[in-house]
Amino acid sequence: MALITYILIAIPVCLLAIILWLCFDYWKYKRKNHFILLILLFYPILSYAQHTDKAQCKISFSSYANQPGKLEYTQDGIIYRFTPESNAWEITIKNNTNKDIRINWEKASFIINGKASGVGFCPVTADSPPTDVIKEKSEITRTVTASNLIKGKKVNKIYSKRNLKRGGRTSVNIVLPIGIGNQPQFFHIFNFVVTAN
């Protein structure tokens, strides 16, 4: 029992000694320690929510690294850029590969707090979402929402700032089935967390 107590005391003391060593031994190892210190100080800021919408809600990736000021992810030469708002999200997909890519919107999913739905386009149309083909070195932009939020011509909110102010969070997952060239479709899943500012 006493050994555990000593270990629990020793860990914070060692961490404090390392931080003090970094600060006071700055002149000897000026650049290296300065960089380490900056990483330690700014890591919480760098990993925090990276997009703030018009309603002052913060949205961040929960499974990918966040970049300052934007929700963007690159994989297999394809850039996915998300611009969220409370009732619809704008998705830009840029094809930097040398093959055409296909996006099957009929099999795409919009999952809000674990409730799955299909994808609907905004402005609302009666047509079913098509399969988009993005030629090499080009991009498309679509504004989408969960199909179960569409009531006639009206679109209900994906998340509400009022609910988020009470300490709540909203989980938003977007599943995009994408095929590159002649390859079969692969489901890309993007996980987001929405919190109040």
Rank of each mutant, 00 (worst) to 15 (best):
W105D: 02
A108G: 11
D132P: 03
V124C: 13
S109W: 04
V133Y: 08
P123V: 00
E139W: 10
S128M: 11
D127S: 15
V124Y: 07
I112E: 12
A126N: 11
S109Y: 06
E136D: 14
I101V: 06
W105E: 03
I111M: 09
N98M: 11
K137N: 15
P129C: 10
W105R: 01
S128T: 15
D127T: 10
V119Q: 04
S138K: 09
I103E: 13
I103L: 12
G114D: 13
T97E: 09
A116D: 15
S138R: 09
F121A: 00
N95A: 07
I101L: 14
N104F: 02
F121V: 00
A116W: 09
I103R: 02
K115I: 11
D132Y: 03
G118P: 02
N113K: 10
F121T: 01
C122F: 11
D100S: 11
C122Y: 12
E139L: 08
V119Y: 02
T125E: 02
N104S: 06
N113W: 08
E136H: 12
S109G: 04
N96V: 00
K135P: 04
V133D: 01
N113S: 09
V119R: 01
I112R: 10
K107M: 12
K99F: 12
I112P: 06
T97H: 09
N113C: 07
P123N: 07
I103S: 05
S117D: 11
E136P: 13
N96S: 05
N95V: 08
N96T: 03
D100M: 11
I103D: 10
T97P: 04
P123T: 00
S128V: 14
T97V: 10
F121C: 01
K135M: 08
F121Q: 01
P129V: 14
I111G: 04
E106T: 10
P130D: 14
A108E: 02
A116Y: 07
E136W: 06
K115W: 05
K135V: 06
I112L: 15
N96Y: 11
S128K: 15
V119H: 01
E106K: 13
D127G: 06
K99M: 12
E139H: 14
K107Y: 05
S117V: 07
P129W: 12
P130S: 13
E136C: 06
A116K: 14
K137S: 07
I112D: 04
N95M: 13
K137M: 10
S128L: 13
N96F: 09
N95E: 11
A126E: 14
K135S: 13
I111H: 10
T125P: 04
G114Y: 04
P123H: 01
A126S: 08
V133P: 05
G118M: 01
G118E: 00
K99C: 06
V124R: 11
I101W: 04
E106M: 13
V133T: 14
A108W: 11
K99S: 05
I112H: 05
G114H: 00
T125Y: 01
F121I: 03
G120Y: 00
G120I: 00
